[in-house]
Design a protein around this nucleic acid. Structure first.
Lengths: 228, 228
DNA sequence: CGCCGGTGAGTAGCATGCTACATGCTATGG
DNA sequence: CCATAGCATGTAGCATGCTACTCACCGGCG
């Protein structure tokens, strides 16, 4: 089972600042998040290396990094297994995001200037553009950018990096299911509330809106994963 | 007819035996934390591999993992540089520890039973044993165990893992400096306050004691690093 | 004297070779 | 027919080979 070929990493352009290990890490991470590499499945380093068009070394190094992030687990002489994300895992992830992102949103609001507000508004518009027709993949990419913008604005780079890692545990479903469009609209509205509070210069309201958003998202995802 | 069970040679049937990469990661991490590998210095994979008595592969893999943790940075064709921990880094680390450990301590207190209280008390006694004569290295190891015990008791494994990673950014100084013994005593007393609140079954007091402890430690370390 | 270009040693990054082990299949013996 | 030994195949883990690059050093030239 070789599966569909992943995008080759090699580019003919000679200037490569990034290493192949970096590229392999990004490629495998996104393949796992959007399900092209399936949770629960075993993959061999050699086969993935073939699919990516590189040698085994950068692929193994990438998988070791993803293992540390909790996305895969090596099984000796068997392969690397993509780990499933249980409802309990999602609960842990969102407990952490609440602890980190709510205070970070408040701090970002305290520091916010007009330039940040404009950036956030632009991000919100980009999200809205993915509602009709509903494109979950593009929407979630914008959602990630929105959150990262606010997190970086809070001034703690490590916090932003930790949240980015946590997000990778939420898998995207492939085809939109029934009612998915309405879900996206609801998520979008929660972001609107955050931006309105930010525009009003009200850090406590920003924090509250972020808390509401994360709690609702947690409910949604935990339920979709079968509940606790 | 199976007879009496023999001791299984394999731990879990399918789990991971420790690899050389794992051991190299632990060895290098602790060498960096206690200063045997010096911050700011460049080290080559080949030389480290010689010192550890293994080939370059597990050493490179270990350094890649430590790079992801923010402890080293590869410089192409030059080596791996041990990153310094600035006062600003420490401020970020403790901002995160406050966001995570204070609520975690409260949750641990809510869940605490007699067994946990006894474990924590034993850990506290182990810390006290390192006060006279003062042994900073052993004391800090116990301190780490104390915090990890509480974090795990809070029921969020990822939270505990994140805090463990953050702690590695605090370097131990080698020989005790003047007044170091008194510092250890003060740190110990802050842990006593946490345990007393825990014994009293008062989650809010546990959280407050943890906050005090972390804020004082932050002040101490940020000042020692030259201030913000 | 100062600048500059060559050059050789050392390096990360990547590819590949090698070994022990896990597992499925098959042939063999009951 | 069924159980099982052993063989073929595939794998992670580790070692090693190879290449392009960095940089310190040195000698010659302005």
């Amino acid at each position: 089972m070789s599966g569909p070929p992943l995008d080759p990493l090699r580019e003919d352009g000679r200037e490569r600042r990034e290493t192949l290990t970096d590229r392999a890490t990004d490629a495998l991470r996104s393949a796992i998040v959007d399900g092209r590499l399936r949770a629960g499945e075993l993959y061999s380093v050699a086969r993935l290396a073939d699919r990516l068009g590189v040698s085994r070394t950068p692929v193994r190094e990438a998988l070791l990094l993803l293992e540390r992030q909790g996305m895969v687990r090596f099984e000796r002489n068997r392969g690397a297994r993509v780990l499933e994300t249980s409802a309990r895992d999602l609960d842990e992830v969102f407990a952490l995001r609440l602890l980190l992102e709510v205070p970070a949103a408040k701090e970002a609001a305290r520091r916010a200037d007009d330039a940040l507000v404009r950036e956030v508004e632009a991000m919100l518009a980009a999200m809205e553009a993915q509602l009709d027709p509903p494109d979950e993949h593009a929407f979630m990419a914008r959602d990630r950018d929105f959150h990262q913008l606010l997190l970086r604005a809070a001034g703690n780079a490590r916090l932003a990096a930790i949240v980015a890692d946590l997000r990778d545990h939420v898998r995207l479903r492939g085809a939109s299911t029934v009612g998915r469009g309405r879900d996206l609209r609801a998520i979008y509205d929660e972001h609107v509330a955050i931006v309105e509070a930010l525009r009003a210069g009200d850090p406590a309201a920003v924090a509250a809106a972020m808390r509401t958003h994360l709690e609702r998202t947690r409910e949604l995802l935990v339920a979709a994963a079968g509940g606790l």
